[in-house]
């Protein structure tokens, strides 16, 4: 397989990261923010794989694996908090959650 353009891969991961950041900043819905975080984490994992391939180093893929595992943990805990939020505060919008002691 002929090598992929590394420049293009890095720019792609930058673009996905910035799109995730944009979603994080503009979404009001907490689940929407979680989706944006997944984009950011995926951009980071992609960078790890690209540079692991460039230097033929095994730890690039190993850390991409760790990122995927931590993203799964983050999604589980985040969604549990959102489910609880819908029950306690009756909202899914991050702006409406403004009490510390419910």
């Amino acid at each position: 397989m002929s090598p992929l353009p590394l420049q293009g891969l890095v720019v792609l991961s930058h673009a996905v990261f910035c799109l995730g950041l944009y979603g994080m900043l503009t979404r009001r819905n907490a689940i929407g923010m979680l989706l944006a975080v997944e984009l950011i984490l995926n951009a980071a994992a992609m960078n790890f794989v690209v540079f692991g391939r460039l230097f033929s180093h095994v730890q690039g893929q190993a850390f991409a694996l760790f990122i995927i595992a931590l993203a799964a943990c983050e999604a589980v805990v985040g969604l549990a908090i959102i489910i609880k939020l819908t029950r306690v505060a009756k909202t899914v919008y991050a702006d409406d959650v403004n009490v510390l002691r419910g």
Partner: peptide, 24 residues
């Protein structure tokens, strides 16, 4: 897959598309 990281590609599909997306 194009970067020859086959295992990671399948983990990505299994964990992200299979588990996280279902949860979301």
């Amino acid at each position: 897959l194009l970067l020859e990281a086959e295992f990671l590609a399948f983990v990505q599909i299994l964990v992200y598309v299979g588990a996280i997306l279902t949860l979301v």
